[in-house]
Nucleic acid binder design. Structure first.
Lengths: 347, 347
DNA sequence: TTGAAAGCGCTAACAA
DNA sequence: TTGTTAGCGCTTTCAA
């Protein structure tokens, strides 16, 4: 029993470390590190030895340690209102597929359309020193914007373009223009009165913008128009409710054009019209927004405005990977993805 | 100009570190660390000073450094086939909301129903020394299972219960039982012949299990039954195609009961039946799977089997947080969430 | 209740 | 092309 001061030791936590690989391959740890990041910078002989050692030892690199040393990690923080919403699900899906190709991983957060939740999610994501941040919309708490700016991390704001200047980059379209297109479409089909059916516009500012664009265009073209909205989430059920409300309002119901802030609402209108024996498009022409999977196959097939959900993910990934590749890639880029008009039987 | 050897320095990368907070609060860094993890272990005086310093400096803790030092991070790796699928979107959404309460973040991956992609995603997620892993299904590549086992990370397999033993914990239900329930439901409503309409069963093993349960139950009860399937994704359009195929097959079409592996397919059947003037439920009784948002409001309202998508997320989060709280929490738990039968107009 | 100090596993500057 | 070395910012003993 010696009186010797035993140095306190922490357990070795990781089973196989880079040092183990280096020992086995008879090279130094930094050569292994170099090989992992730029295999072409290492001699063929060393490369093969390292590769063999990795395979043999079943080595999984520790991104946490790498991230700390490099002061930046291979994660991208992505914040959307909700992945239950098919629009964002498509974007997230495309984004993740493309980021994955560049070996970037996705740290996902749902703000639930709440700016305070969003702020917390941004704070949490930034604590991972992410390689980039993706956030939905252009409007955020002041603190969120401040954090994002001072983080020096590339930021892409998605799904919206508008009056506000992006924090860094933006990929999306003008929702007023999408609403305007729906209005023009209905007017072109001879509708005498326009109605906009929407939901949750107090939270979903993009839906509110579409409504505003719809109503403004009707006004410009001298067509009477009004807006029926509801605080609930956009569902087929709510669409039925809104349509019933429209019918209950009475007045002149000759050649009405109905714009919906979302295809789910439009689908509910279709179902409710069917139940009440109203003809679509003869009595009521209906146009939605989203081109959701059912739009082409329902009865009648639904005319709609199709947002480029996948393209937004795709372009966002491209912007991020470009920026990460060369520091001096174009700054403050905005990409207007546009949207398209899908004419089917319901109008 | 001195000849003095200048020590090489790395840039200070983080703007505000724990040391900065400590200096300002006139305490040591380890006290700040302690305060952040267990505020009650620090004197009120020190706590207040630290809190003030944090607020003043706008300090964001660095999870990467924390994760490295603690050899475990506050992320949970979550792998689902696709978040475009409403089932998984609901589960991920619930899971994330609950994990967020425990200050755990979600690293999301989509396997696209491919076990090799899944393996890569697991490898990538494990390189973050996650606090836990969530993975969809019980069937994976051998390498995936090996990595997961040897990682010593809590693993929850979701959305499926069955013959295989879980790697660690499991939350889900038996899909054969769900298929069987659909068959019994149709038989109880007097159907003489049963048809199962499904899609992508070569990839979606859970859909294949539902089909198997449906057909086995029909056989047991002496009811003729057959299976029409298609490799495409489950959409309303495909539902229409499958139903057309059923009609084209001819034979005795008296009192047919149609089970669908997914509500989207059932919706397509409803639309196609409408177009072809077939009456539902008189000519064809239809039951789906999923209870997707439109099921209650379509025409006729759709009978369906409802999987507890949210509950799965909820229970998974509970299992994870419990396990993280006490190391010796029950090991090898399986939770059978069950599912429910929703009877509406279509049967 | 607080502080000193030793790493966690890796990257990157620099030297060889 | 490879190796040496000094941290990255934090957690966690252990001692005071």
């Amino acid at each position: 029993m010696t009186d010797e001061r035993r140095p306190r030791r922490r357990r070795k936590v990781q089973v196989v470390t880079m040092t183990d690989v280096a020992k086995r391959a008879q090279v130094s740890p930094s050569t292994v590190s170099l090989y992992l990041r730029r295999p072409e910078a290492v001699s063929a002989r060393a490369g093969e030895a390292i590769q063999a050692a990795i395979a043999r030892l079943d080595y999984v690199p520790n991104m946490i340690a790498g991230g700390l040393a490099a002061a930046s990690s291979r994660v991208v923080g992505v914040i959307v209102p909700s992945v239950k919403n098919a629009f964002f699900a498509e974007t997230v899906s495309a984004l993740q597929r493309e980021l994955g190709r560049a070996r970037l991983q996705t740290l996902l957060g749902h703000s639930e359309y709440d700016h305070r939740v969003e702020e917390e999610l941004v704070r949490a994501a930034l604590s991972w020193t992410p390689a980039a941040m993706v956030i939905t919309g252009l409007r955020h708490n002041a603190a969120t914007v401040r954090m994002l700016r001072s983080s020096n991390v590339p930021v892409v704001q998605i799904w919206e373009l508008g009056a506000e200047t992006p924090i860094d980059m933006a990929v999306g379209f003008h929702h007023e223009q999408a609403g305007a297109m729906a209005a023009r479409h209905l007017i072109a089909r001879g509708r005498k009165t326009l109605i906009y059916l929407s939901s949750r516009t107090h939270q979903d500012k993009r839906a509110a913008d579409r409504a505003a664009g719809f109503l403004a265009t009707a006004a410009e073209l001298g067509i009477p128009a009004r807006h029926i909205t509801h605080p609930g989430a956009a569902t087929a059920e709510l669409g039925g409710t809104l349509f019933s409300q429209l019918l209950a309002e009475g007045g002149d119901h000759d050649r009405i054009g109905v714009g919906c802030s979302n295809d789910w609402i439009a689908l509910g209108v279709l179902f409710e019209a069917q139940r009440r024996g109203k003809r679509i498009p003869e009595d009521y022409a209906v146009i939605g927004f989203g081109d959701l999977p059912f739009a082409g196959s329902c009865n009648p097939a639904l005319s709609t405005i199709r947002p480029p959900s996948e393209l937004i993910g795709h372009e966002t990934a491209r912007l991020i990977t470009t920026r990460l590749r060369c520091e001096n890639a174009p700054y403050a880029t905005s990409i207007d993805t546009g949207f398209s008009e899908i004419h089917r039987q319901s109008t």
